[in-house]
Design a protein around this nucleic acid. Structure first.
Lengths: 417, 417
DNA sequence: ATATTTCTTTGAGTAACTAAAATAATGCTG
DNA sequence: CAGCATTATTTTAGTTACTCAAAGAAATAT
């Protein structure tokens, strides 16, 4: 019946994996990461969590303690039970430091983070005259870091790495910026530039990814293997965590929820295309509607934020036109979220951001409408969390970027000596 | 400046991984899989690919040969070069067999696959009177497998496992069907039922996932770590491969591209919601428009396929109304694909399916329009592949499901003895 | 024939574990 | 309070899964 059955797969079959198989993190590193995740944890529990024998933990821990990464804690993890009480292990916060920077058009923020993930110092930098200039950006970053260090009284030498996030299209593997509102057009090898400016190896990433990392490390995503983070600032950002890690897409250009199309030939977006979600719910979209629909006393040359605030006030005051503007934006938001849910099937969606001034987009009605637009099954309903970090969310995520790599380098046997 | 910096992370920070770290496949299994992927490969090349020393390969291979999984090949991999010619290793196809079944409403298909991934036999089963009955389905599956075995002259005992795919909401981990058009409503423990009916351990999965597996193993996806498969049959299916493996979503309910919303308060979908992509491009959507827009000679009680064919003919003949129906469907298809691309950022989108009768949705204009709706960067443009497998795609994917697990069990040291 | 090149095997050694027994530190019970 | 039960950690003696370096094998080039 078939012509040549034996020769159907002459060149073999099955996925062709290019690199080596995903190598698991060395056990020393896993120990450190587990201790950090737990805060304080006994050796037995570590053994259970990492699925190794207690003997293995015992044999590795003294080395980590000897290098000042780990310490035994006096306070026991458990009490009041029979048996020998466990001795808790903790990270030594002073073992290392990293900095995290979030660069933006009008205000940079920065944190100094210790080895245990604690925030040691914070700083911010308002940009009076933002230019799209690499040198300026590097100088500002340098000065921010200096502020952090003097504030905390920590010498430069203890800082191992830096993580930097900024808006735009960023390839974190190569450390190049393909496009960013902060930089001149064209490819910029920003990671290399900042590494020299800051004097420490520097990793860069998209700012939406930073927030996802922050949720993964400090927020609601800690206990979830897969979740989605949606953030509304200037535009709409999205981050995806898969398997307890950040997923960036094959080319690091994915997750563009804001430019997902929700209407054929729809509203004009600032990206030049039509029907983007962003063109219905971002501030400029609302301002566009406000200026035609409302009789605002000031109608020209006002910053978007002022008009938006006025619109918000009017809506609260009962102005039906203003209300309908927000209502429609909310409905499109629901549609966008439903699409994300139907595609990615996360068990958790985190609505996160620095300011959360777009509360109308996170209203209960929006989430309720979204719930009607997802595939109906008997699975548990989607969970939502709303998280307003303030400014620190982004920069702490950036610090995580650095801390992850710093931890890995500190845990290799040769470094431990 | 911050109130209580030291206590920001009192409970630790960082992702809380529930299970043990993702354990890499044992080397023996990796060897077998690499040999299968390559078809024939020398020990040196295996060592390079798997990033181990040649000595390791040498030490493990005799055991695999002794157990009849591997064999040395007479024909050398390379010739005409200096140096000792490499000896090729191949899988022994007869080492094991698995079956793959694709169950559907009107026609099941099945393949018998050997250890090397070759198709040994195929069979199909037309369902005269499809009922939503578990017993009937199990019997049909059993008879299909019997046909395969007698056709190939292979005893039942050599078949190690079965993989079965069907439409619906299926949890492959538990082997339960939450909903399927083939089965009565309510949860059905189909994997267990089929395991007893077929006499071998059976894994089940959603049919769109099968096609993704088929692309990963036999098709255009083999060399890609991340890609998307979109398939149009009755509805719209989607599969996602991440990191050379099938991604199923946290709850195995994701990838519902067809019920992604492309229009607020849009056309009514058979799922009961409005604005689903499926409501614009599936056959019933086109038929709905055809019956109002066209003066078809037969307008009632005709099967959808007949009306669709007539509509297609009219469009080709120049009927402007018919054309506009297809044109709109194509534009919505472009929108849906653009959304997938903007979110997942795959380097490859595969349009795949059994029949490919929906050629108007895969037309060049559609792909061109899609290209205008994606984020414009200087990255390489999205690659498309169109793949018409015929019937075997689905069932070969199902066999892959079984072969993956069979390979793993054959490669554990105790089994090799 | 001899040198060169490339592939494979051998043999010694090591890192990273494990299992099982021993030791330590507590609570409970009579 | 002594002794037992219980739980945590450490010690000891392997085992597994590799690596490295050198030797051996099989071809081509001179």
């Amino acid at each position: 019946m078939l012509p040549d059955l034996a020769t159907i797969a002459p060149q073999g079959c099955g996925p062709i994996r290019s690199g080596a198989a995903a190598i698991p993190a060395p056990l020393r590193q896993q120990i450190v990461e587990s201790v950090r995740a737990a805060g304080a944890i006994a050796r037995v529990d570590l053994a259970k969590q990492l699925d190794v024998s207690p003997a293995t933990i015992t044999s590795l821990v003294p080395e980590l303690i000897g290098n000042g990464l780990l310490a035994e804690d006096l306070a026991p993890v458990r009490q009041g039970q029979r048996g020998r009480p466990p001795t808790a292990l903790r990270l030594v916060p002073q073992a290392a430091y990293v900095v995290g920077l979030k660069l933006a058009e009008f205000r940079h923020t920065a944190v100094l983070m210790d080895f245990a993930g604690g925030t040691v110092a914070e700083a911010a930098w308002d940009r009076a005259n933002p230019q799209r200039d690499i040198g300026q950006l590097a100088t500002e970053a340098r000065q921010l870091v200096d502020r952090l260090l003097t504030q905390a009284g920590i010498p430069c030498s203890l800082v191992l790495r830096a993580g930097v996030g900024l808006p735009g299209f960023i390839d974190h593997r190569t450390g190049t910026v393909h496009w960013s509102p902060l930089l001149p057009d064209g490819e910029v090898a920003l990671a290399a530039r900042l590494s020299t400016a800051l004097g420490v190896p520097t990793t860069i990433d998209n700012d939406a990814n930073l927030l996802t990392l922050a949720e993964l490390w400090f927020g609601h995503g800690r206990a979830h293997s897969d979740f989605v983070v949606v953030t509304i600032e200037q535009g709409i950002g999205m981050g995806l965590a898969l398997g307890h890690g950040l997923y960036r897409g094959e080319n690091a250009f994915g997750m563009e929820l804001g430019h997902t199309k929700v209407q054929l030939d729809g509203a004009l977006c600032r990206c030049g295309q039509r029907g983007c979600l962003e063109a219905y719910i971002s501030d400029y979209a609302l301002v566009r509607e406000a200026s035609t629909a409302l009789d605002l006393s000031v109608r020209e040359a006002q910053p978007a934020q002022i008009i938006l605030d006025a619109l918000h006030d009017q809506a609260k005051a009962g102005n039906e036109a203003a209300r309908s503007i927000f209502r429609r934006a909310g409905r499109y938001m629901a549609l966008g979220l439903a699409n994300v849910y139907n595609l990615f099937d996360p068990s958790l969606i985190i609505l996160s951001g620095g300011r959360m001034r777009y509360d109308y987009l996170y209203a209960d009605e929006v989430l309720a409408e979204m719930a009607t637009q997802i595939i109906q099954t008997n699975r548990p309903p989607p969970r939502f969390e709303i998280n307003a970090w303030g400014e620190t969310g982004w920069s702490r995520g950036a610090a995580v970027l650095a801390l992850t790599e710093a931890t890995a380098t500190l845990c290799i046997p040769e470094v431990l000596a």
